[in-house]
Design a protein around this nucleic acid. Structure first.
Length: 745
DNA sequence: TACTCAACTTAGAAACCACGTC
DNA sequence: GACGTGGTTTCTAAGTTGAGTA
């Protein structure tokens, strides 16, 4: 329950300064703010001009995503709600993130980890075999044995020992070859500043295949009558038709944008006829698309193999480049095909036509002395450049947002790896400065200058909550999302007291990719007071930090530590959290699977801290339903076991023999076991529910210093493959090779 | 100093694929 | 062999940052 607590001004020394400063600052404020305030006014006016209905619509569509993600807010310790009981130091948030649901963690990580999962399954089936009588009813037992016998008969002929050994040897050989071919760039000297390569040769990007027209019998209908579209407009119609089962095509902005752009592709005659999207019937095109998708899925083994080979050939030819005598994999050598733009959240440009890119749109970057890529016949490149200060191989400008797109190297390349290593080194360096930086911004909470106070509070949030910097965005060009510096008054609520905590800030905003950030955080009193001050005389749509932007913040950070920017705090706090959690959770007595569980729990703590979410899996509801029916079955089983226990007790009372006493004991155990299993299932259900929206991979790939993981694996004798799949091992090869057990972030 | 743009990293969704179960 | 499930890979949108320019 929220209580209104009046803060006694006379007891608050901060208020004194604030009062004094406020008057002084007011004049300055008007001056300094002019630019930003003007913008805000514009926004307000815009908002003001909008009708209430418009506003409602906007809120509705904005909250649509919110309501989806908050469906589970009712569940205690929902993952989207991060609480922090104490504000003593900066560890608390991270600790809390990790400790959310101590009980659930082991179980839940087991759900995440395939190795553990299969082991669990294995353990379970072994257990089942050992104790069928206690685990299942007589009937079930019979069925199971019958099935096992049948399965035994159905089993395919097993591989011989020799075959198995040969397969393993082949795998080992392949691994060794790969290892030998690996460019150990981390053992070489770095190039002078700014130079990325000395020699670069590649074959240019692969273009999207030409449009494959619809068969004659697949018709588009307008106003109930078949209408023959020209190739150009048919292609765009097909983009829309093949998305009919996607939510996008029900969204008004998407439909409108599509229709406007589609009409641009039409002939005059087509444009004269097709004037209303609601009268367009794409069903036949949609069905045709579905059939084609099915056909693709149902290809024979031979067809699949042939395609695989063709693809491998393409990768072999275009998927690699030669950089300084080494063959490096290209990350995205295929040019993005034409499509309808799928902006995320309430993106004002969703549905617009992303046009086909031709060689004439593409700039090539390579060495002067390399074999210059040959454009497809009849075409030419927009430009051929030889710029060794950039990492891209080709680039083009897309038409929807006017942004430059690049062809770049794969994450396992030298260029990416070196940058990654550097990133973690900067974050490690922050470790030595962070105490002083925290002291500085705490001092700045009391600064006479408003802009310094705002900077201090923003930095406090970036450090404590791992918020993104939050650049300013052009209104109407992208979805309305914010980061720290761009927070608006409407995004926070101040609670003097909430759920037994004082000075609580409730955050609720859409961050990158329109992912909702919702968190209730108790903050230091000075932060709270400052926020009150920042919000004074402002309206919902006004900037919370009206005298701060990201360049200003980063400039300040540079003065505190070379190379320091806002995003370094995210890397730093994520890696520190992982290290702390591993230290806390790893039990020397644990088995290897137990240790892996600890690792995954630590990883999860970081994902929660960084607010890495995902859309619930499509099969989520079904798998939850299955789990729930398992729970129901277990409950019934317990009831039955209890009934049997009661009867056994009665019988033993009437006729007290050793045999009957044993029966009672075994029935008791059965009840207890059943209850334990039920509890586990229930915990598992809660876990799955809460894990529904958590994405672990993003932090693993981008925020956690891989050396922490490698060192941990080596120290605790855990196979690295249990933590990192091949992609990760390749990307972090530098860390794998240079890290020993004693590495400390 | 504000603004724009290029270059890069970070991000989730979707497609793909391998494996287990029925 | 069909199907479901979940991990991996691919795709591309959406951020951050720094440099150049007016």
């Amino acid at each position: 329950m929220t209580q209104d607590v009046t803060i006694q001004d006379h007891l608050d020394p901060f208020k004194e300064i604030s009062k004094k400063n406020k008057d002084k600052k007011k004049k300055k404020t008007t001056f300094e703010q002019e630019g930003k305030v003007a913008k805000k006014k514009e926004r307000k006016e815009k908002d003001g001009n909008k009708s209430d209905a418009d506003k409602k619509d906007k809120t509705k569509s904005k909250t649509k995503k919110k309501s989806e993600s908050s469906k589970h807010d009712g569940i205690s310790s929902s993952v989207t709600v991060k609480t922090e009981p104490e504000d003593e130091d900066f560890v608390s948030v991270k600790k809390n993130g990790a400790k959310q649901g101590e009980k659930r963690a082991r179980q839940e990580e087991a759900n995440d980890d395939p190795a553990i999962k299969s082991k669990k399954k294995k353990r379970k089936s072994e257990k089942d075999k050992e104790q069928p009588a206690t685990e299942e009813s007589e009937d079930e037992g019979k069925k199971r044995i019958k099935k096992e016998v049948k399965d035994e008969g159905d089993k395919k002929p097993k591989k011989t020992r020799e075959e198995k050994e040969a397969a393993i040897a082949l795998k080992v050989k392949k691994k060794e070859e790969e290892e030998q071919a690996r460019w150990r760039w981390w053992e070489e000297e770095k190039y002078e500043d700014g130079i990325k390569w000395k020699f670069l040769e590649h074959k240019g990007p692969v273009f999207a295949p030409p449009y494959d027209p619809l068969p004659k019998d697949v018709k588009f209908y307008y106003d109930g009558k078949p209408f023959q579209l020209g190739l150009q407009s048919e292609e765009v119609a097909k983009f829309f038709a093949s998305m009919l089962d996607h939510e996008y095509t029900t969204v008004e902005i998407f439909r409108n944008n599509f229709f406007v752009d589609w009409r641009k592709e039409m002939t005059l005659e087509e444009r004269m006829v097709i004037t209303d999207l609601a009268k367009c019937d794409f069903t036949e095109i949609y069905n045709y698309h579905k059939v084609k998708t099915e056909e693709r899925k149902n290809r024979t083994k031979e067809e699949k193999l042939k395609l695989k080979e063709e693809n491998a050939k393409l990768v072999e030819e275009y998927g690699f480049c030669v950089m300084d005598h080494h063959r490096e994999r290209i990350g995205n050598f295929k040019i993005e095909p034409p499509a309808l733009f799928r902006g995320r959240g309430d993106h004002p440009k969703q549905g617009m036509l992303k046009k086909r890119i031709l060689p004439e749109d593409v700039t090539i970057n390579c060495s002067k002395d390399s074999k210059i890529p040959v454009p497809p016949s009849g075409h030419q490149w927009k430009e051929v450049r030889h710029d060794p200060t950039v990492t891209w191989l080709a680039s083009w400008t897309e038409n929807v947002q006017g942004m430059v797109k690049y062809v770049m190297l794969n994450a396992n390349s030298k260029l990416k790896g070196e940058k990654d290593w550097e990133k973690y080194e900067v974050a490690r360096k922050l470790k030595n400065h962070v105490d002083a930086i925290r002291r500085t911004y705490r001092d700045d909470f009391k600064s006479k200058e408003m802009r310094i106070r705002q900077r201090a509070v923003a930095l406090y949030f970036i450090d404590k909550l791992a918020l993104r910097a939050g650049n300013e965005k052009e209104e109407g060009e992208t979805a309305d999302t914010v980061g720290c510096c761009s927070l608006r008054v409407e995004h926070i609520k101040l609670h003097p007291e909430l759920d037994g905590e004082t000075h609580v800030v409730e955050f609720d905003f859409l961050g990158k990719d329109s992912i909702r950030y919702y968190n209730k955080v108790p903050v230091e009193k000075k932060v709270y007071k400052n926020l009150q001050l920042f919000m004074e005389n402002k309206q919902d749509g006004d900037d919370l930090f009206d005298r701060l932007n990201t360049p200003m913040l980063n400039k300040h950070l540079q003065s505190l530590m070379e190379g320091l920017t806002a995003k370094v705090f995210r890397t730093y706090n994520a890696s520190v959290t992982l290290q702390q959690q591993l230290q806390e959770l790893t039990d020397p007595e644990d088995t290897v699977p137990g240790r892996i569980l600890s690792y995954n729990r630590a990883n999860r703590a970081v994902a929660v801290l960084c607010n890495h979410q995902r859309a619930p899996p499509k099969t989520f509801d079904q798998s939850m339903a299955n789990l729930r029916s398992k729970i129901e079955a277990k409950k019934e089983q317990i009831l039955l076991a209890k009934k049997e226990l009661k009867e056994a007790k009665k019988e033993a009372k009437e006729n007290d023999t050793e045999k009957l006493r044993k029966v009672v004991e075994s029935k008791k155990k059965a009840v207890m076991r059943g209850e334990e299993q039920l509890m586990k299932l229930e915990v598992q259900a809660t876990d799955r529910e809460e894990n529904k929206q958590i994405a672990l991979s993003t932090s693993k790939l981008n925020y956690l210093d891989p050396r922490i993981s490698v060192a941990w694996c080596k120290k605790w004798d855990v196979n690295l493959e249990k933590i990192y799949n091949k992609t990760y091992r390749d990307k972090f090869a530098w860390a794998v090779h240079m890290t020993d057990t004693d590495f400390v972030f």
